[in-house]
Design a protein around this nucleic acid. Structure first.
Lengths: 337, 337
DNA sequence: CATCAATATGGGAATGTTCCCGTAAAATGG
DNA sequence: CCATTTTACGGGAACATTCCCATATTGATG
């Protein structure tokens, strides 16, 4: 069980040197003779020596690891964000460890503890839809470990955030539906714990207001994002005395699900009912009819968040900034509207 | 920059105890008085104390971290595998650090070095399509760190592997096309460096043989999985004097791309040309016409691989097994065939 | 009241590395 | 050829924790 690891001491002993000298060679320190340098490098290669980052991290009080906590892993959204973050992190010399909060508050808390115990140098977080208490994250501030939020942010905390212009994206999407002569536009909204839900809802309302279309509260359905429930809500909408002629959904999975249901009912999309989503998931261009949606620069969200985090790590705590980076969305008009 | 971390020594000093006693409380050792136990736990809570896993890992020569290296992050396949692995790992008390080899050999090698330096207790790997040399992985064996391959395995190495019955899946898919009266079935194959490509190709050949359909080498096109090239190959196939009436694609992204191209040409799917994919990606059920495909238990691949790895970690090196777990695929017949 | 056992606590080594501080030997300068 | 600088290397502390061994205190037992 307890196998021996090759250490600099092993190399030092074999060459009758001190560990200091070996360390100097391996870290590229200049004051060491060419002869010993060669000998050390050769032996290190031959023994498959690999420096032990644990001890280095311990010594430096810096792990070169950043944590990323995401609420789900089902849609392509978060994997792509992670990919963007990974790229920047790798470039800057950081490893990434991933936490999956599974949309539950307790798991999120457990994950933050793990991240702390593993001495991450910084944390990227997208919150659970349940998260209302932020003590587990404020610990990081107290300990001087920077946090950057993305997508699902905590508005109370004064830290960098990366979001997209949800309000404007929603506004444009609804405006587009109005220009397509839709008069009764429903909104399958997200839970009001999430700022993204609130902002997209505001965009929806303001677009209707601008074009003097009465807002019918009956057509606004906030839900908890569990896809299975979409069916209930869509059926409910369709059975109204005055059913909607368009649906603006909080995100693409919701829109796609709604579209499937509507099609199954034998209704024509977009003639009978138009549908617009949000995020431009991979599948939305492939579905029939293809889905009109508001695209987000997903990978860029990850990379800018990671970049902001690394910047923050390199800054003294007294100079921490709390920039909010708002990335642009783009309305992609396809056949569902 | 150098902020102070709360350690057991801090707690010990504040309570006039030794670090040994504090350590005992925190690790749940019995021989400590109720009074001091309470005092320590209270102070620890109050100071946001978190044990430093780096030092514990260093001391135990065990990091409770496993590495996972995947070749790409674009399809939903690997994120889902990771999710499955993550679940098991978390349950067994392991963190996961992710490496992204980006389908290039050099990056894969660099990633394995990082994993070694970070003292992973085990490694999950799915190889790059380029990888032909395995020295960077054999180092792990020499160092006594178990490896488990999944999906893209190295057949020369005597370690556990998790794959699906690629041969049978391909065989069934092609058989299905034959039963649909298709006579000229093309195969968009993967690179022959990958065992999955080879096995699926064998399944394809054997199915044709079984039904006495002549194998036309012109209809077999191995390619390097860069989606952009699918267009070239599909166009080429369609321009043949005797064009195919069906395409069996190595994976779903390829099939989906082929389907789009075929549709754009004005051909009817599946009447003029049927299409079958492999993997049952999220999008394949949504596309129009929906894609017939061979589904893989993706999440299960991740979880069994992780389980095998953890088993291996807990075993003495002399008792390492090299189980090959072959998971079942299932033909999902949809409208594209 | 002496002896012994049990209970609670302290001391110190060990994990692998870096870096500061010494210092011997070699090289340079007059 | 001696003094001084440079070069090359060694010794040891520090990082946070665990665990073994030692020891002081308490209580029980004869």
């Amino acid at each position: 069980m307890k196998r021996h690891q090759i250490t600099i001491v092993d190399i030092a002993e074999k060459l009758n040197l001190s560990k200091s000298t070996v360390s100097r060679v391996l870290t590229g320190h200049p004051s060491v003779s060419e002869k010993t340098r060669k000998a050390v490098l050769e032996l290190a290669e031959q023994l498959d020596y690999q420096r032990n980052m644990l001890s280095i991290s311990l010594l430096n009080k810096k792990s070169n690891t950043i944590g990323i906590i995401v609420p789900e892993f089902i849609s392509s959204y978060f994997p792509q964000v992670i990919m963007g973050a990974q790229e920047v992190a790798a470039k800057e010399g950081y490893n990434i460890i991933i936490g999956h909060s599974n949309e539950t508050y307790e798991t999120e808390v457990a994950n933050t503890r793990l991240m702390l115990a593993n001495q991450v140098d910084g944390l990227l977080v997208s919150l659970t839809k349940e998260t209302r208490n932020f003590d587990h994250l404020k610990v990081f501030e107290r300990k001087g470990i920077p946090i950057v939020f993305f997508n699902r942010v905590c508005e109370d905390m004064n830290v960098p955030k990366v979001v997209v212009d949800d309000y404007e994206g929603a506004f444009r999407a609804v405006e587009h539906l109005i220009k397509r002569k839709k008069k009764r536009i429903a909104h399958l909204a997200g839970p009001d714990t999430l700022p993204i839900s609130v902002k997209r809802l505001r965009g929806y309302r303001d677009a209707l207001k601008k074009y003097n279309i009465p807002i019918d509260e009956e057509l606004i359905i906030p839900y908890d994002l569990t896809i299975a429930k979409v069916k209930i809500y869509v059926n409910h909408l369709l059975r109204l005395d005055n059913p909607p002629d368009a649906i603006f959904a909080i995100n693409d999975p919701t829109a796609i699900e709604a579209l499937q249901i509507v099609k199954k009912k034998g209704l024509q999309v977009p003639k009978d009912i138009a549908i617009v989503g949000f995020s431009n998931d991979y599948a939305s261009g492939l579905i029939e009819p293809s889905l009109t949606t508001v695209s987000q620069p997903v990978k860029e969200i990850g990379s800018t968040a990671a970049q902001l985090l690394v910047d923050q790590i390199n800054r003294d705590i007294s100079e921490w900034k709390s920039i909010i980076r708002v990335l642009k969305t783009e309305l992609i008009v396809r056949k569902s509207s």
